[in-house]
Each structure stands twice: as C-alpha cells, then as structure tokens.
Design a protein around this nucleic acid. Structure first.
Lengths: 212, 212
DNA sequence: GAATGTGAAGGTTTTCACAGCA
DNA sequence: TGCTGTGAAAACCTTCACATTC
C-alpha cells in the first residue's frame, strides 16, 4: 500500500468525495461490490480515473470482481477524515449564514456546527437551531476554548478579512469563505472559497460562447 | 486578435472572473492601468498566468505600461457575457433557496432572479423580495414564456432530477445545482454543482493529512 | 526601461493499454 | 474471463524566458 508519498491533487480529493457519496448510495441499495467502470459511469468519469485515484491510497479492489462497497467507503472516510466529528464555527448569520446553520447535510457528514457568531446586537443571544449566537468579539477566545477545527465565514466582504485574521490568530487551520473577496492567509492555513457569483458567471460564459 | 480557436480551460474562465473583480475594485480606486504583475499579486497568481489567460482572447495591454483598467474590465465582461442581463429562475425556497433569493451580489452582476418556484402550498403565492413564488408545476411552461436563461436548483436531493428534467425539457441550457446529487443532463446543457459538504470535506482532508 | 505577448520547456493530470491476479 | 493496478503515453496547464513594442 503506497504511504501517500506523492502529493494528491485537488481533483482527486474532489472525486474521492464523489465516490464516497456514490458508495453510500450503493450501500443503501445493498450492493456489495462495484467495478470501477460502473462507479465511473455514475458520475461521468472514466474507469481508469477511478482506479488511479484509489491507487494513490492503496489497493482496495479484487481483480475480476471490483471493489467491496462497504469497505471502500470506510477507507475513503478514513482518508478524508469523515469517520469523526469536526467542530465547526459559523461567523455571520445573514442570508447565507442562517441557511448554513440549518443545512442538515453538514451534521450528516460529521460537521458539527458548535458555535455561531455575529456582530449584530439583535442577533447576539438569539437561538439558532439550539445554538446561541455569540458576540463576534469573543471569536478568537471561543474558537480556542471550544476546540474549533473549521471556521465558515459568511459575513459581508468588508468584514471578512478581519474575521479571518481573528480566527487565524486563534490557531484555526481551515477556513471556508463565502464572502466574495480574496482573503489573505498564512501558508499553513487551508482556505477554500465558495462564491456563488463565480459559478453563475461560469454558466454565463458557457451560454455566451456556445457557438464556437 | 485570436478568435478563440482553442478551447478555453475551466481554470482560465475561473480566473477571468477573479480578474474581473479585481478590475472592478481598481476602477473604484481610479486606477487607470495595471500590470500583469500587480494584478497577479492581488490573487496569488503569477504574472505569466495573467498574460497567458488574457492572450487567449486578444492583446489588451500596452508593452511597457500594462493593461487599461476600464477597457480590460469591459473586455472581460464581453467575453464572459456580463454586460447584459441574464434571466434566472430559482427552484426551491428552503434554507438555501431563500438565502439565494436575497443574495444581493447576483443582481449586481446582472443575474436577475425573475422567477421563484416551490412545491409547498404554504410557500406558493408568498412574496419573496417582490417575487411571487410560483407553483413548480408551472416550471416548464414559465421558464419558456419568461425567457429564462439559467436555472438554480435548490430543492432536496430527492426531487432535483425531476426538476432538472423539467427545465431541460423547457430548453434551459445552463443549470446551477445545489442539491447534493449528481444530475444527469444532455451534452448540450451546462451543469455546475455547488456542494457545500464537498468543500468542508476538502478541508477535513487537508486537516487529516497535514503531517505528510 | 518597462511590461506585454508568446513559443518552448516544464510539470501535472488524464487516458491508454496491458500484465497480473481472482 | 473479468477487472484491478500501474507504468508509459498523451493531453493539458503553468511557468519560463525573451523578442517585441511602447
């Protein structure tokens, strides 16, 4: 089994998430094995790609037969860190923030929104799905004391960098940012951006350039 | 000026959106020109990358000087189709749907949410930011009659494919999907998926594999 | 002198194709 | 026979480096 010596590409990680979902569905259908071919077809990928992706982490399949559904899912969970709970803090309870606070998929995958912050006095102290909204002034100290692993930033663009700096100062190493702005973080902090507009712009580009 | 003969990569399109934002900010600061070097630094890219990306679409710069901010922004808008209005329909007014309905960035970039649909009788007929929620049963006919360009799917996973099939039947060629499921669409339909869990899983992977 | 535009080089990711094993 | 695991080839994307232009 390769000890993951080579750097794993972003795309491979992304596809691992996809395989994980497919395997969860297959498990519900009581399938016991699946071939790379079939797994690929479900998500418009190629069998070779599936096999290559998995091969970075080990040899999980059986030649002539395919991959054992349950075991492979567990292995991917292990690789991705999905077989544990992650403590998540959400900063900003505006449109998007409150949607995220209620989003049920997170809990299902082990992402436990433990703290919620805002700077609006009307929101601080209010109850969001059982979580009391805290004052953003306590952000840094609370992410430390509550052992937060991941912070979701859902504040307006103007305050996003300040929030980011606070949590980085609190030792946070993983941030998911919904503000439409480019945050600056140190090299050892992983930052991912979720920008809905950029996705729509992608579609606009595709429509705009259809006839080429 | 190259007539965009070669296929433009996803990453280039993505960066174009990023440049566009940077240029909009520079325009506000009344900057008239910017070099690839400076533009790159703003988003942790390389100057060569910026120049290469732009060169796929033409020669917009002046040697020795850089790129004209306003003109370049217009050019990118033209390329991406951002200098016009796009009619968007939103299907599903749950957590995420209602956040999107209120999301102000969309309108700013010319994405006009014109129709909103749901299947919940309590929601149908209600007013969301000036838009009356329509019955999802009218989805297909209304996307046609209202000239919808882009559909955002924000319904539960279980009903997403049905919604998708309806709008595809209505001639829609661009879909942004928030349901955590892999939709099947014909080849001439552009589909983009926005899955918050996958983003968090990416972060989980990074944290889980920090020491390698 | 300064910065673009772009072939060529370098690096990464995907696909191919087949040996090897159940 | 069927399907994995994987080097090698192909395709793709990024960076380099420099001629070119202002």
């Amino acid at each position: 089994m390769p000890a993951q010596l080579k750097k794993i590409s972003e795309s491979t990680i992304h596809r691992l998430s996809i395989y994980y979902r497919a395997l969860a569905a297959l498990e519900k259908e009581n399938r016991t094995t699946i071939s790379s071919k079939e797994l690929a077809k479900r998500d418009k990928l190629t069998p070779a790609q599936v096999r290559k992706d998995l091969s970075f982490f080990g040899s999980f399949g059986t030649r002539g037969l395919g991959y054992p559904v349950v075991e492979l899912r567990n292995r991917i969970a292990e690789i991705m860190g999905l077989n544990r709970l992650w403590n998540v803090a959400l900063v900003g309870v505006g449109n998007i923030g409150s949607a995220l606070a209620q989003y049920k998929e997170f809990a299902k995958q082990g992402f436990n929104i433990k703290l919620i912050f805002d700077n609006d006095l009307r929101k601080i102290g209010s109850n969001h799905k059982g979580i009391i909204v805290s004052d953003v002034r306590n952000l840094k100290s609370m992410v430390v004391s509550e052992n937060i692993d991941i912070v979701i930033i859902a504040v307006p663009a103007a305050s996003a960098q300040a929030v980011c700096d606070e949590v980085v100062a609190g030792g946070i190493k993983a941030i998911l940012n919904f503000a439409p702005i480019n945050l600056k973080v140190p090299d050892d902090v992983v930052l991912r951006n979720q920008n809905m507009c950029i996705e729509l712009e992608h579609l606009a580009f595709a429509l705009n350039n259809k006839n080429r």
